[in-house]
């Protein structure tokens, strides 16, 4: 049974794992190909990564091949929408901290974070983010003296 939205999928885990690993090997290998390889007594910058990529590729292949003979199993994973909220939350901090300032950036980060949790009232979410923002500002800006402004340039007009 495969149902992406609710978070279950049936796959041969090791096949996916092997291909995933091999993909990294190809990525790193393709880039390292352009670096000078040098020779054994004077290794170039490409020597070590290229060898590692080759080894990684073989390992990935071995995992995948072994996986073909295993049986598919059902796997549960986090709902994609929650995943997006969790990943977006820190990014929001990075984007907002300069223009909006620390306080608002933390509020936004925490609020988007709470969106990943099911069944919370909107007011609870707002309170949690507000409290976190004030606490974090007190600890990091006023307490530890992190060189960031509590209020960004949006407030200096």
């Amino acid at each position: 049974m495969t149902d992406l939205a609710s978070g279950t999928i049936t796959i041969k885990k090791d096949v996916v794992a092997g291909v995933f690993i091999a993909a990294f090997a190809i990525g790193f290998g393709a880039i390292a190909w352009n670096y000078s390889f040098g020779n054994v007594s004077q290794m170039g910058p490409g020597f070590f990564p290229l060898i590692l990529s080759a080894v990684l590729g073989c390992l990935g292949l071995a995992v995948a091949v072994r996986g073909i003979f295993s049986s598919a199993e059902q796997m549960t994973f986090v709902a994609p929408i929650r995943l997006l909220f969790v990943l977006a939350s820190p990014l929001l901090f990075g984007v907002l901290v300069r223009p909006a300032g620390f306080l608002l950036a933390v509020t936004a980060t925490a609020f988007v974070g709470t969106l990943a949790a099911p069944g919370m009232r909107i007011l609870t979410r707002l309170i949690v983010s507000g409290v976190l923002a004030v606490l974090a500002t007190a600890v990091f800006i006023w307490g530890l003296g992190l060189p960031l402004a509590a209020f960004g340039r949006w407030f200096t007009l």
Binding site: V86, S89, P90, V106, T109, A110, G113, V128
Partner: peptide, 12 residues
Amino acid sequence: MMFPAILVFSAI
């Protein structure tokens, strides 16, 4: 309540 705090801490 905990994980939004962890997210905030990680980002900072």
